[in-house]
Amino acid sequence: MTTFLSSLKRLFIAILFALILAVVIIIITSSEPSEAIKVFFLGPFSNKYFLGNMVSYAIPLIISGLGASIAFSADMWNMGLEGQLYIGSLCGTYLAYQMSSCPKTIVVPIVLMVSFFIGGGSAAISSYLKNRWKINVFLSSLLIANALFPFVTFFLEGPFSDPKAGMAASPYFNRNFMFSKILPPSELHSGLLISLGLVILFYFIMKRRVLGYEIKMTGENALFAYYGGVPTARIEMIAMFLSGGLAGLAGMINIFGSTGRMLGYMTNFGWNGIPIAIIARYDPIIVVPAALLFSFVQKGAEAGALFADITPEIAQLIQATIFYIITAEGLFEAIGIWKRKSSA
């Protein structure tokens, strides 16, 4: 329970910090600060359309945040989430495009499974390299992801591209496969239920199952876990596989839910999973509000660009600054938000 509370605390600090930073940047750059601040903060909540879009944007963030937290819980620094998301959704989209004549009830589960396994497989390579040759997971997952970006872009520009699109994008697959919309004028889709289901599933696994305990034990102290009979190599492999699989799933659910095809540059869903997991301190439940915070910053900036003179790039700046400062607990101690650790 104490870890849950400290996760919650970190979330509140992140929110507070994001809001203060947003106000400061808007005051500096905008010519009508009061109007711009109002649009930024209230824009995403102003009507059903904007609210639905904000929640819809959070769906892939929730899933990739879950993916990051499960790998980090096992002390596997999977920095390749973005690459795993790319390759998983590329394979999934290709399959959905090829199976355009099959019924929806068959296609959607198969495609989601394929994205999951491809994403997971590309993450598991790093874990294999670690077990076999002690190669740093952080480095290998980054290098693999960096090699995957041009690879995927090659397919989206060449063999599997839509010539009418005018940018790197795949052709649309059968529109019937798309998830149903929940809140009609907005983009909110039934992928929300899948993501919340995954949150509950992973909460259950991490808190109530042996696998979750073994993952956390491996993360805390791998040698001790090994001594206690935990097959650490296999546990690390499973954590990496689930993490990459969730990243692939995040991309594919976003495609099924809102875009209907794969676009060359996704909006950092994989990268943003990392700070979301860290804000939530790897707690699956807190991942949801953390993802909503990131989505709020993004959509607030977009609303600000529409109705006031905010540059939409401030979203990225605010998100990055949250990431930068979130682990600096000494800073929060100094300004009195964080309670000093007793006896330490």
Partner: peptide, 10 residues
């Protein structure tokens, strides 16, 4: 990691 993202954002 945050510094990398800040650099891109800034």
């Amino acid at each position: 990691m945050g510094a990398n993202l800040i650099a891109t954002g800034l």
